[in-house]
Design a protein around this nucleic acid. Sequence first.
DNA 1: CTGAAAGCGCTTACAG
DNA 2: CTGAAAGCGCTTACAG
Lengths: 344, 344
Amino acid sequence: MATIKDVAQAAGVAPSTVSYVLSGSRKISAETRAAVQAAVDELGYHPNAGARSLRSTRTDVLALALPLSGTGYLPVGGRFMYGLSEAAGKHGYLVLLVTPPGSGDAGAGLERAARSRFADAAVLMGVEMEDPRVAAMRALDFPVALIGHPADESAAPWTDLDWEESALASVRALRDAGHRRVLYLATVEEDVGTGRTYSVRGIRGAARAAAELAAHVDVCHSSGDPAELYRRLDARFDSADPPTALAVQHPAAIPGILRHLAARGVQVPRDVSLVAVGSFPEDLGGLDVTRIELPVAEMSAAVTRLAAEAVEAAGDPGRAGGDSAPHRLIPPRMIRGSTVAPAP
Amino acid sequence: MATIKDVAQAAGVAPSTVSYVLSGSRKISAETRAAVQAAVDELGYHPNAGARSLRSTRTDVLALALPLSGTGYLPVGGRFMYGLSEAAGKHGYLVLLVTPPGSGDAGAGLERAARSRFADAAVLMGVEMEDPRVAAMRALDFPVALIGHPADESAAPWTDLDWEESALASVRALRDAGHRRVLYLATVEEDVGTGRTYSVRGIRGAARAAAELAAHVDVCHSSGDPAELYRRLDARFDSADPPTALAVQHPAAIPGILRHLAARGVQVPRDVSLVAVGSFPEDLGGLDVTRIELPVAEMSAAVTRLAAEAVEAAGDPGRAGGDSAPHRLIPPRMIRGSTVAPAP
DNA sequence: CTGAAAGCGCTTACAG
DNA sequence: CTGAAAGCGCTTACAG
């Protein structure tokens, strides 16, 4: 592989001049610049990543810390890998995956990536309300940006869909259609248990909806096991006062839920209305569901910007260590589908 | 961050000794080893990735070259990111994502990653029958392993589900149930057009099935646009001699297909039987479809092993450059679901 | 069994 | 406007 020396020799200049041409951090005469550029193109020169990062302490890599997928594959993780890779590319960053599912300690891969300086910053997914990874990375002076809205909003830069408002808006849409008994199907219970921010805040929004909208809102946790989920739904629909509407924060389960309800003789929206909270198109298998979509591209762009800023700030002692952190809370946008009808 | 010097000082030895303890490439007395290990643990020392790779030309990183997703998000890409990250982790590798969807040149990110030595090898997804990336990487002496079965089997190590056998087996299962008119719904036409190996080989298997099994096998290309796909299906089902069975190599479309058929008054499997080719569970939204699943974990493990071997071989001049490449072709396994019934 | 030293390929003060 | 030189943190022949 060509080195900076090869380029310098081909262009008849010193290696340092090549470096300056490439970084643009020094005024260079037009002829010299052209000669160097020609040699770079001719040789297909790309600076060695290891040498560059050793010297400049910049890797141009963002680490993406995936959540442990206790319940198997998480489609949302795949979406963000794509979304982040694309957004990061626009900022000149590559994306490194850490903490593969199945490893023991949730933070082990991340810690290694940070201590070995495999990356300039980490983007954290599957964030918990009190996420231990935030303090761990701060102790290492390693910049982070979160996809999630933690309890301490100033602990680290973060972005998220406003899940609380999303839950509220979905119940409101149902309430506006006349429904007074709404079942809020929250995330799978593992996510509730570990305090994932989207899970906790969604449930919080459902509780607010009950208080503010004069509606009965029954919160039920979803399950990764469809049979168990359907048992829970059956219990509600078999009760004396069954719900007339569902708000579902487990969108991947919706096609199955619709089939299960149909098998019970319950039609959507004729008998029951339904809103999806935080879905993406693949989840719904082409069904025209009334929904609030998860804005993956917008969140990916936002978290990339936050991460890039955190990297800059870490290099600039003046700006680092302020006790507030920037964030971007994304308001929900309701998309009208065909699954909401007036209450019977 | 602690360096090897800090560890050496804390342990009272030379930096080189710390390096030897960590690499295990030299006999070290038990006391020295213990002292070094204690210092390493105490300081939380991890070797700097840049320095290590600069010196040893090993990065312990595998680049995953994603296909350009012309038709938007590809769930299969997400699956392999998880699968590969997990499999690579077991071999001590981290995974770097390159060529995010949306970038102009399919190979630009990969080329940069290779020339800058961001990784030790590349795993290529979305492989085409004659994939230009293979030659490009060979020209750079950059090891690759493919997820896909290219025309030239000896060009690079590769692994894949045997799509030809999969298509053949799916038609055979339908033929064995008495079906004589089978519609083979191939991949979306973009994949056919670019010559993706799974696409070409699936169609090849369908053609063989027609020749070998005395069945009419009509091959129809799927579409990313559901409306267009349903028009194509309607054309077949409205014909004088409609199919009685479907083999579908576009599993994500199956829930929608079933709904569309139901709307036409066609029940599966009462009126039409169906087999999915290369699905994974999320695709089918909980439907109990007769299917050949895409063995993501097995393929990820295989391609990781192939990549790791290619890295070793590249370091060993004796083994490199042989004119054959190892591969692993995975035979299909049919999973019985409830979507195949005897022909009417 | 252990250490001192060279050098991987860059970037960036220092010098002119 | 350009160059010579130091040094980032490792690994591994060379030496004892």
